[in-house]
Simulated scan of single mutants.
Amino acid sequence: MDETSAGPGAVRLVHDDDRDRYEALDGDVVVAVLAYGDSDGPDAEGGALGLMVRDLRSTVVAPDRSGAGIGSAIVRFALDDIRGQGMTVRATCWFARGWIERHPEYQDLLEDAPQDQEGDAR
């Protein structure tokens, strides 16, 4: 289980890969969850053997913690983890998709991101 402490309200961010989700914890209390599902991405010929795609499906923050930046923190944590694993992202969650749109430094992770013609490898 990957984990880090981050920003707002001193929550602890963890990747619970057994449950296919990222969590924000305040002590032992889960205050936010980002659920995902993995699938094989298309290879260069359109087959299903390319990079693994992590679909960010749903972001939920406890109502009493809404507006504290925890949703943003958990999305950033997930994207950093995904980048570190060499995966791409499909963001079907409206919150995660909007967050990525507002942060161009993560847009290269999107499965439908245009490929850099100069071979920029991040």
Rank of each mutant, 00 (worst) to 15 (best):
3 E>N: 11
5 S>W: 00
6 A>M: 03
7 G>S: 06
8 P>M: 00
9 G>M: 13
10 A>C: 04
12 R>W: 01
13 L>Q: 02
14 V>E: 07
16 D>M: 09
17 D>I: 07
19 R>T: 09
20 D>C: 11
24 A>G: 04
26 D>K: 05
33 V>G: 01
33 V>T: 11
34 L>N: 05
36 Y>T: 05
37 G>M: 13
41 G>M: 06
44 A>M: 12
45 E>V: 13
45 E>M: 14
46 G>W: 08
54 R>S: 10
55 D>P: 06
56 L>W: 07
59 T>G: 03
63 P>I: 07
66 S>V: 11
66 S>F: 10
67 G>N: 01
68 A>W: 00
69 G>W: 00
70 I>E: 00
71 G>Y: 02
72 S>E: 05
77 F>A: 02
79 L>S: 01
83 R>P: 02
84 G>A: 08
85 Q>M: 12
87 M>Q: 15
88 T>P: 05
89 V>P: 08
90 R>I: 12
91 A>S: 10
91 A>N: 10
92 T>V: 11
98 G>T: 13
98 G>A: 15
98 G>R: 13
99 W>S: 04
103 H>A: 00
105 E>L: 06
107 Q>N: 06
108 D>T: 07
111 E>W: 14
117 Q>I: 10
118 E>Q: 14
119 G>N: 07
120 D>H: 15
120 D>T: 15
122 R>M: 07
122 R>L: 11
